[in-house]
Design a protein around this nucleic acid. Structure first.
Lengths: 190, 190
DNA sequence: CGAGTTATATAAATCGTTTATATAACTTGA
DNA sequence: TCAAGTTATATAAACGATTTATATAACTCG
């Protein structure tokens, strides 16, 4: 056989790069083959079809987002720094962000499932200590912030010419303060 | 000429129906032609190309969402009923909802632009009166609720097998209460 | 070193989009 | 009324992307 030049990683890497720079629409067999300087055959030997490959790009995107956010976590304030990381991601990687927020989430039948699937486990402990709330309240607070951040990120990622990141940050910061206050004072909630 | 059987409305209507039942991926010339029982030619005579047609479907979706939400507005509580309408929409029309939230929004350079583009003008007056807040605070409150609702709707629309609508409603209701409380008590915000 | 295997290329088949040409039915003006 | 022009549609061909079939080249193992 000819020397192996392609691997599953090479192929998915090229597909991911295309999605990153131009969205999932740019992920085509031909574009990948061109980028790799090969025929379409290696692509099909590492994935069943384009749908499978796009699914792999989604998985890669999830990993990317996770790593991107993790790298920006400030141990001193993981709660705020994580929220801000999502907003930065929206600005720096709008295509990946859109892929991320609208990817199919399997096995989610409750907000609790969603929380377990999406949230970083370190946050509730931090919040519980920092804001003097119960573990359950910290989870609730964290979930509210995730929802708000996804909402603002979704809007941000499709708005042109674009809202200044600073304006988004301050809106987010306002919401955080309100959520924190709401949680600590609201005896009826959760 | 043969009798005119197709119109721009017929074509876009068929495209919209396909998007509604299966998402934008289902909107293809062939599928539209098949659904209308005609060749592809009429489709191209009423739209320049598929991108234009898909854009028309997006516009139709925006109108649909607007009408859907408007029809469910309860004059007694427009704020909550609108929020709930979006959640119901997410559940009943997940494909349309996804098209709606990720459609390109042109000419948005601030949250204020966004607010003007998306929000129903009647809400702030209702909120200002009902909750005893200034017009600016009512706007802020409404914007927060829009963001939160888009966030929760985005998640809801891609989760399988799905989160019970009741759980989403109560989460939304909690957030509303917190936002209302936050706005009325927070002298520093806005 | 030859048989079998496998990574890749070439090319053909299929499907979606788009354009070109043909046909059918209407309008208009002589 | 009928020929010319126009237009709504159909047929079909061209193009591009996906997928499958076949061919070739280089490796492993006996």
């Amino acid at each position: 056989m000819p020397k192996q030049r392609m691997t599953r990683e090479t192929v998915i890497g090229a597909a991911f790069a295309l999605a990153r720079s131009g969205g999932m629409e740019q992920v085509t067999v031909k574009a990948i083959a061109q980028r790799l300087g090969c025929s379409v055959q290696p692509i099909y030997s590492y994935c069943k079809n384009m749908e499978g490959l796009r699914q792999a790009v989604v998985e890669e995107t999830k990993r990317f987002v996770k790593a991107y956010v993790a790298a920006q976590i400030d141990a001193g304030d993981p709660f705020r720094s994580m929220g801000r990381a999502y907003i930065r991601l929206t600005q720096e990687e709008p295509h990946l962000f859109r892929i991320f927020i609208l990817h199919k989430r399997e096995g989610i039948s409750s907000l609790d499932d969603l929380y377990r699937a999406e949230a970083d486990g370190r946050i509730p402990a931090y919040l519980a200590e920092k804001c003097n709330v119960s573990a359950a309240q910290a989870r609730q607070l964290h979930l509210d912030m995730l929802i708000y951040t996804i909402g603002i990120g979704a809007i941000f990622s499709v708005s042109t010419p674009g809202i200044p990141a600073e304006e988004i940050f301050s809106q987010q910061e306002r919401a955080y303060r309100i959520f924190i206050k709401g949680i600590t004072e609201d005896e009826h909630g959760q």
